[in-house]
């Protein structure tokens, strides 16, 4: 039982990271109906930037500066490469984001090089034991951070002018424009938010061990998450992130018991298998809006 709870705790920690990433995907999807494949790059550059800043200005300040800096990078990317394509087919924009991802990720990777980087986080691999269940401090930190971010986002979308404008625009773009909502601002803010969330997720994904250039692969797990939670549901992204995180971690822990005939750990592909099952049974996910085709 303790083994299971330990795996669950670890899964929730990873799941919090996935939730942060998935929130970024969902915010962009809600504002422009596009899945941005550039999130992995923003996540990795966030981690790289923070690890370079930590030595100079301390960890907390580095996280704040890094998050804001990556949000600004995302803002610039949106303005330069995405805005001119508004109105074109969504898959064209999606493929542009793949191109951006490669460029940004390679530039960030150049600062990693062939070595491994240390984030310089205060948690490391320290463990807290609660009633026989082992919890890593960094996972607790990730869960707390995700909880704070989700609360702030909830308040942002509920009470601020721009947050309300974003919700209106995602509901009906033309009606929102008629009410005086600037769609350009909505696009810009959603990209900046997604960039910042990705950078923050990168910090928690890279905490603990040293990380190398393959860190960005973590961000792709957010795709099963948004399929499970529903492409346009913020709550779905959070819940989906936790579920996927727990499934992955539990499968990883019990791999040798469940699949003794497989040598490579199945934890890594478990999220994608879940994704395929969800698409077979319920393509719009747990909380997503069912796609209605009108002619």
């Amino acid at each position: 039982m303790n083994e299971f709870l330990t795996a669950t705790g670890q899964g929730m920690g990873n799941g919090a990271v996935y939730a942060l990433l998935a929130l970024g995907f969902v915010i962009i999807y809600k504002s422009m109906s596009v899945i941005s494949f550039a999130q992995p790059a923003f996540m990795m550059s966030g981690a790289v930037l923070v690890s370079h800043l930590t030595g100079r200005i301390g960890f907390v300040a580095a996280v704040v500066v890094g998050t804001i800096a990556i949000a600004l990078v995302a803002l610039v990317v949106e303005r330069v490469a995405i805005r001119p394509m508004v109105g074109k087919a969504v898959f064209v924009i999606a493929i542009i984001t793949i191109g951006i991802d490669i460029v940004v990720r390679t530039v960030a990777g150049a600062f990693v090089g062939v070595n491994q980087l240390l984030l310089g986080d205060p948690w490391g691999l320290k463990v807290v034991t609660v009633g026989g269940v082992q919890l890593q401090e960094r996972h607790i930190a990730a869960i707390l951070a995700a909880a704070v971010v989700v609360t702030v986002l909830f308040l942002f979308f509920r009470y601020t002018r721009i947050g309300l404008a974003m919700r209106a625009a995602s509901l009906d773009q033309e009606a929102a424009m008629a009410q005086g909502v600037s769609i350009g601002t909505v696009f810009a803010v959603s990209w900046a938010l997604a960039g910042g969330l990705a950078a923050l997720a990168g910090v928690f994904a890279a905490s603990g061990n040293a990380f190398d250039q393959s860190l960005w692969m973590v961000a792709l797990v957010a795709l099963p998450v948004i399929i499970l939670g529903g492409l346009d549901s913020l709550g779905g992204a959070v819940l989906g992130g936790l579920i996927i995180g727990i499934v992955e971690s539990v499968v990883r822990t019990y791999h040798s018991t469940w699949f003794p005939f497989l040598d490579t750990n199945t934890g890594g592909i478990a999220p994608y298998i879940v994704m395929l099952l969800v698409l077979l049974v319920r393509p719009h996910g747990l909380f997503g809006t069912k796609e209605v085709e009108r002619v």
């Binding site: 999606a94 040598d263 199945t266 994608y272 298998i273 395929l276 698409l279």
Partner: peptide
């Protein structure tokens, strides 16, 4: 059969998952 039920970006995500699952089996 799975892919034909899906359109646009859903298909892109499914096929992306396929690469990971496929690579797992190639390694295994």
């Amino acid at each position: 059969p799975l892919a034909t039920r899906l359109r646009g970006l859903y298909l892109a995500i499914v096929t992306l998952g396929l690469v990971f699952i496929g690579q797992y089996f190639f390694i295994e």
